[in-house]
C-alpha cells in the first residue's frame, strides 16, 4: 500500500496557496546594497585596528543590514567576525555591559550567525565565550528574541 502520510496533499489543491520562504520575509521598504555598506565596513575595520572595540561594537550592533541579500550579509559578517575575534577574553564582559538591550539582541544574532558558518566555527571558542558573557548579563531574553525574530543578520 502506498504510504499515504507522504502524499503532498497541497499539490492537489490549487487554492492551498503554499507558504514560501518569501511569504515570511519581513516587509522591507528597500534593500541595502554592498556599496552602501562599504563605509560601515571600513569604519568597523579601522575601529578594530586602532583597538577601539567599544566603538566597533556600537557600530556593528546598531542598525544591522537586515534588508540586504545573503551575499551582502556574508561580506558584512566577515568584518563583524574580525572585530569579535580580536577582542581579548577579559574585556568582553566590560564591553557587553555598555550595550543597550537592543544592541545586545543584535550581538546575539551575530554570535549565532558565526556559529552557523564555517569561518565562524573555526573561532567557535571565542564566540562561545562571548555568548557565555552575554547570557550571564542578560539572561535568556536575547536568545528567545533571536529565535523568534525574522530579521536575520
Amino acid at each position: 500500500m502506498e504510504d499515504w502520510r507522504r502524499i503532498d496533499i497541497d499539490a492537489f489543491d490549487p487554492d492551498s496557496g503554499r507558504l514560501t520562504a518569501e511569504d515570511l520575509k519581513p516587509p522591507y521598504a528597500s534593500s541595502v546594497s554592498l556599496q552602501e555598506l562599504e563605509p560601515k565596513i571600513s569604519q568597523l575595520r579601522s575601529a578594530a585596528t586602532s583597538g577601539d572595540f567599544l566603538n566597533a561594537l556600537q557600530i556593528l550592533t546598531t542598525d544591522p543590514p537586515y534588508s540586504a541579500d545573503e551575499t551582502t550579509k556574508n561580506q558584512y559578517f566577515h568584518a563583524v567576525l574580525g572585530v569579535l575575534t580580536q577582542v581579548r577574553q577579559a574585556d568582553i564582559t566590560n564591553l557587553v555591559k555598555q550595550l543597550s538591550p537592543k544592541q545586545t539582541d543584535v550581538l546575539v544574532k551575530y554570535l549565532y550567525k558565526g556559529m552557523s558558518v564555517p569561518e565562524g566555527q573555526k573561532q567557535g571558542g571565542m564566540l562561545l565565550s562571548w555568548f557565555e558573557k552575554v547570557t550571564q548579563l542578560s539572561g535568556v531574553g536575547p536568545v528567545v528574541r533571536y529565535l523568534s525574530d525574522r530579521n536575520t543578520v
Binding site: E132, T135, Q136, G139
Partner: peptide, 19 residues
C-alpha cells in the same frame, strides 16, 4: 537576577543564571 550575578567571579557556578 542576571544583574546581581555579574559580580565578576565567573567561576562561581551558584551565581551563574544560565545552564
Amino acid at each position: 537576577t542576571p544583574a546581581s550575578a555579574s559580580t565578576g567571579d565567573d567561576d562561581d557556578e551558584g551565581n551563574a543564571p544560565f545552564g
